[in-house]
Design a protein around this nucleic acid. Structure first.
Length: 824
DNA sequence: GTCTGGAGCGC
DNA sequence: CTGCATATAGGCGCTCCAGAC
């Protein structure tokens, strides 16, 4: 009898060799593996799958309870019934997913072993598909080499035509020409081996006019056909560069194979139109299998352990993909004058600015016609009409999609990449996030939306504090990618810690890579989370809390690390709220959530200067006015005049205590570091004026340097040169010089708004007049302040007038009146 | 502050 | 030569977290 071990298999894949030998000759359908392949779920436990897929409840029995259930008749029968139920659920799941017919079709297409398809061996399916295709054309296939053998002797036999004649040029070897890179890749497995799809920099924000989502149907398979890309057609390069497109007229093996698959799929889809009900599902599975097979071929060209590994071909395909997407964007923006707001690999989103769905559709028709004219195989198509959309980042957006059933429109909310679709956030933060998203997309007024979000946050905080939230909502789920013991930094990973502890105390037998681990973040009763150890140490399995009073939910963690980040990311472009305000609603210390300085580039400076914000906020980010002492070599930040004479303004509360020594500068007009007596460190009015002038000139020249930086964070290209490349998107600055590789735009590093703000700050520092009008104080205090200021006025007069003249020359001082029109 | 490993998405 | 254990893996692009430095 072979050993029926389990648990040492990678990715928890299937059964051990022992089990396989026991069932030799029979197919094994593991519904756990199939579900992981075909479904997207937070957890792939039978309980979860039964609930979400079959809508049935499953009774769970803890492993440690099983032995005792054998002790009594009733409990033994219960155990048997549960086991039987599990068997039926697995079977039902198998039918629900149509695993057998689907894998049957896939196997028939590729000609591999059905049992392997059931194990999910995708690379092997493609391998067999290509083996058959090349063999049929009388090519000799390359040998299969193991990863180990690859490292020792990276030599793969080229494919050679049996009738080795004219086609000798085909006998090229695509693998192994860059052995160094390849072994790096095999060993470290870090970093991509070649460039992939192009992702456009999104124009972030909330859109309430129709957006068109257009995408190319199966981009990569279509590129292979469009440009006849194959082992047999592409000329190999010797220097490791990407090969050129083939000029070979005869159709290659890969393109022909794909063409056949596409045509067969077309025929099957045609048959579906007037097929009897009973045949409908069968056809549907057949066409799915054809599509899956066509789409998985590219992936295996780039897979370094594949028998048909061909990095140059994979590179050539993705390069074409990037160029096609960029050409499409250029066409839509420059020739059709439409605004492209985002695009990823094979898709573009167009902001129509229209409320009328029919007009929006007609634009889509026009665009698709124009684009499709340019290609033979490639087809772009309308894939979605979004009524409203929130575009947050690359690969992160949500939209209300309008769909049609029998020409009747209905709306669905689509969420891509947002925290709410990820399993590694707790249910409670996902629920709040969904609520906020629904509010934002509701189309309600800004005030209403913000108010209801703030209200919801206050409410959930109350409920959490009162213990009204179920434990399940706090559960976070993460996947193990290695054996729990194999993590080098397992100490820092909550799910690894939980898995190790569960194994240790015997509540389970062990874990395999691919298993999902649920946990909650806790704190020890009576201690605050702030002082305790790292969060990985405070992670517990939900069951550990149920019968143990020592650990309780760490509510502060959930408020600040789960709910706040999710909500504040959603609200990033929503007027009327801010991370600070949201933190306030959650009862958190709002000072910890202040805007990071690099966000300042995103905000509109003009509104900042126009509004009635207080001085410290208005001049945030400005460089201080530095006065250097004529006697000693020290320098110090010049304090604001009015603040020095009036201790009770707002500025005092924000000034750090370290500025105290400079406080009385304006009273004494002496360097604070020089001896009090004697003439050392005395600063004259002319010195002040000179120093102010010199510093203002510095900022002026900074502005005129006109340094431009690319707004694509991954590029960050910086230049002073002018780039005259045309772009449909003039407002955002000119196209990045890295153009085909980067889709960003050059923006001024130091804008006129920055300069204006800086000069205004210097004016503010030296101001002795305007500040009086603004102050709201008692008559007696005002009198004494006025006297002090009038004494200092002659000293700063010269400096103040120098800098205010410079500021007033700055064109930014001209206010566009339309900016002042504000909807009330 | 920056950098890195890990995870989990989108396409 | 036999018994037993081994190894079994589609791609790249892009956030985001937490910890180390």
């Amino acid at each position: 009898m072979p050993k029926l071990t389990k648990g040492n298999s990678m990715f928890g894949a299937g059964a051990s060799p022992g089990i396989m030998s026991c069932i030799a000759g029979r197919l094994l359908c593991d519904t756990f593996l199939c579900s992981r392949d075909l479904l997207k779920e937070v957890s792939y436990s039978l309980t979860q799958l039964a609930k979400n897929q079959l809508h049935k409840d499953r009774k769970e029995i803890a492993p440690q309870d099983i032995p005792s259930m054998f002790q009594k008749l009733e409990s033994l029968i219960e155990l048997i019934e549960c086991a039987q139920q599990d068997a039926w659920l697995s079977l039902e799941l198998m039918f629900h997913l149509s695993v057998i017919p689907l894998t049957h079709q896939l196997t028939k297409l590729s000609g591999n072993l059905w049992g392997k398809t059931l194990q999910g061996a995708r690379a092997q399916r493609v391998e067999y598909l290509l083996l058959h295709a090349f063999h049929e054309q009388k090519y000799i296939n390359p040998d299969k080499t193991s990863a180990h053998a690859n490292e020792a002797k990276d030599q793969r036999l080229p494919k050679r035509r049996i009738d080795a004649g004219s086609a000798d040029r085909n006998a090229e070897e695509f693998g192994g020409d860059d052995a160094k890179l390849e072994t790096d890749h095999v060993k470290g497995k870090k970093g991509p081996a070649y460039a992939g799809g192009l992702v456009l920099e999104p124009k972030r924000g909330l859109y309430d006019k129709y957006i068109l989502l257009l995408d190319f149907n199966s981009l990569y398979p279509s590129i292979i056909q469009e440009y006849n890309i194959c082992f047999t057609t592409v000329e190999k390069t010797t220097d490791g560069s990407i090969p050129h497109l083939p000029s070979f007229k005869e159709i290659g093996v890969l393109p022909k194979l794909l063409r056949d698959l596409v045509e067969r799929r077309k025929r099957v889809k045609q048959m579906m139109k007037n097929a009897p009900r009973i045949k409908l599902q069968q056809h549907d599975i057949h066409q799915q299998a054809l599509k899956l097979t066509a789409n998985s071929m590219y992936g295996c060209l780039g897979f370094s352990n594949s028998r048909f590994y061909a990095k140059p071909l994979a590179e050539l395909i993705t390069l074409q993909g990037r160029e096609i997407l960029q050409r499409t964007v250029d066409l839509v923006q420059n020739n059709l004058n439409l605004e492209v707001i985002y695009g990823d690999t094979d898709s573009i989103m167009i902001h129509t600015g229209l409320d009328d769905i029919e007009k929006a559709k007609s634009i889509a028709v026009k665009v698709t016609q124009e684009v499709n004219k340019k290609y033979q195989c490639l087809v772009i198509d309308l894939d979605g009409l979004y009524k409203r959309m929130l575009l947050l980042k690359k690969k992160k957006y949500a939209a209300i999609k309008v769909q049609f059933r029998n020409d009747i429109p209905y709306e669905v909310i689509e969420r891509k990449g947002l925290d709410m679709v990820r399993r590694d956030w707790s249910l409670i933060s996902k629920e709040i996030g969904d609520f906020c998203l629904n509010q934002i997309l509701s189309g309600g007024s800004c005030d209403d939306v913000v108010e209801s979000i703030h209200g919801a946050l206050v409410k959930v905080r109350e409920e959490m504090k009162n213990g009204e939230i179920q434990l399940e909502k706090y559960v976070i789920t993460k996947t193990l990618t290695k054996q729990p013991e194999a993590y080098p930094d397992g100490k820092n990973q909550p799910h690894v810690q939980v898995a190790l502890r569960m194994k240790q105390n015997g509540s389970c037998t062990g874990f395999s890579p691919g298993d999902t681990i649920p946990y909650v973040i806790c704190c020890e009763q009576g201690t605050s989370s702030a002082g305790s150890s790292g969060m990985a140490q405070r992670a517990r399995h939900p069951d550990e809390l149920k019968d143990n009073g020592k650990w309780i939910i760490d509510i502060d963690y959930y408020l600040s690390q789960q709910i706040h980040p999710v909500v504040s990311r959603l609200c990033a472009s929503i007027q009327g709220t801010s991370p600070e305000r949201l933190a306030d609603c959650l009862g958190l210390d709002s000072t910890k959530f202040q805007r990071r300085p690099n966000y300042a580039a995103d905000v509109d400076h003009s509104s900042l200067l126009l509004g009635s914000v207080d001085d410290c906020e208005r001049y945030e980010g400005c460089e201080p006015l530095v006065i250097s002492c004529p006697s000693c070599s020290s320098s110090f930040d010049c304090p604001v005049v009015v603040t020095s004479f009036c201790g009770s303004t707002d500025d005092e509360t924000v000034s750090p205590a370290r500025e105290k020594p400079e406080r009385n500068f304006w009273q004494s007009l002496r360097c604070p570091r020089c001896p009090i007596d004697g003439d050392m460190g005395r600063v004259s009015p002319a010195m002040i004026a000179n120093q102010v002038k010199r510093q203002a000139d510095h900022f002026l020249s900074l502005y005129y340097r006109n340094t431009m930086t690319c707004d694509d964070e991954t590029c960050n290209y910086t230049t002073r040169g002018l780039n005259l490349r045309a772009s449909g998107d003039f407002e955002r600055g000119s196209v990045c010089p890295n153009y085909p590789h980067c889709n960003g735009h050059l923006l001024k590093k130091y804008t006129e708004a920055d300069l204006y703000k800086q000069l205004s700050y210097f004016c503010h520092v030296l101001d002795t007049e305007k500040c009086l009008q603004k102050l709201n104080m008692e008559a007696s205090a005002r009198m004494s302040l006025e006297t002090s200021l009038s004494r200092i006025r002659p000293v700063v007069q010269m400096a103040a007038s120098v800098v205010s003249k410079m500021r007033d020359r700055c064109a930014f001082g001209w206010i566009n009146l339309s900016d002042l029109v504000v909807a009330v």
